[in-house]
Amino acid sequence: MEIMYTAHASATGGGRNEGHSKTDDGKLDVKLSSPKEMGGPGGEGTNPEQLFATGYAACYLGALRAAAGKDHVKLPDDTKVTADVGVGKRDDGQGLGLKIGLTAYVPGYDAEKVKAWMDAAHIICPYSHATRGNVEVSLTVGE
Results as ranks from 00 to 15, higher is better:
residue 86 G to H: 03
residue 100 I to Q: 02
residue 33 S to C: 15
residue 58 A to Q: 11
residue 114 V to F: 14
residue 46 T to M: 00
residue 38 M to F: 05
residue 65 R to S: 11
residue 72 H to E: 15
residue 31 K to Y: 12
residue 85 V to T: 06
residue 98 L to D: 08
residue 20 H to G: 07
residue 119 D to Q: 06
residue 57 A to H: 02
residue 123 I to T: 12
residue 10 S to L: 02
residue 82 T to W: 00
residue 4 M to S: 01
residue 36 K to D: 12
residue 26 G to N: 03
residue 57 A to I: 09
residue 9 A to W: 03
residue 25 D to N: 15
residue 39 G to L: 03
residue 44 E to R: 02
residue 8 H to Y: 09
residue 54 T to A: 13
residue 136 E to F: 00
residue 48 P to N: 01
residue 11 A to E: 02
residue 14 G to R: 14
residue 15 G to R: 09
residue 134 N to D: 04
residue 101 G to T: 11
residue 130 A to G: 01
residue 93 G to W: 02
residue 97 G to R: 04
residue 133 G to F: 08
residue 61 L to T: 15
residue 80 K to S: 13
residue 108 G to N: 11
residue 76 P to M: 06
residue 49 E to C: 08
residue 34 S to N: 11
residue 102 L to P: 05
residue 31 K to W: 15
residue 36 K to Q: 13
residue 30 V to G: 09
residue 18 E to V: 00
residue 2 E to L: 02
residue 9 A to T: 01
residue 131 T to S: 07
residue 104 A to K: 14
residue 67 A to D: 08
residue 13 G to R: 03
residue 121 A to T: 08
residue 114 V to T: 15
residue 21 S to N: 11
residue 54 T to P: 08
residue 77 D to R: 03
residue 138 S to C: 08
residue 19 G to A: 05
residue 88 G to W: 10
residue 130 A to C: 08
residue 113 K to V: 09
residue 74 K to L: 02
residue 64 L to H: 05
residue 103 T to W: 00
residue 91 D to A: 13
residue 41 P to S: 13
residue 111 A to M: 05
residue 29 D to K: 04
residue 104 A to R: 14
residue 122 H to T: 11
residue 141 V to F: 09
residue 123 I to Y: 05
residue 14 G to L: 13
residue 56 Y to W: 10
residue 120 A to L: 14
residue 82 T to D: 07
residue 48 P to T: 10
residue 70 K to R: 07
residue 107 P to C: 10
residue 68 A to I: 12
residue 72 H to T: 09
residue 50 Q to T: 06
residue 90 R to Q: 06
residue 47 N to C: 03
residue 20 H to E: 01
residue 47 N to V: 00
residue 136 E to H: 07
residue 15 G to D: 03
residue 20 H to N: 08
residue 34 S to C: 05
residue 43 G to P: 11
residue 126 P to H: 06
residue 28 L to S: 04
residue 8 H to V: 15
residue 48 P to Q: 05
residue 28 L to C: 02
residue 26 G to W: 01
residue 104 A to Y: 07
residue 101 G to F: 01
residue 45 G to I: 14
residue 30 V to P: 15
residue 76 P to H: 03
residue 2 E to R: 01
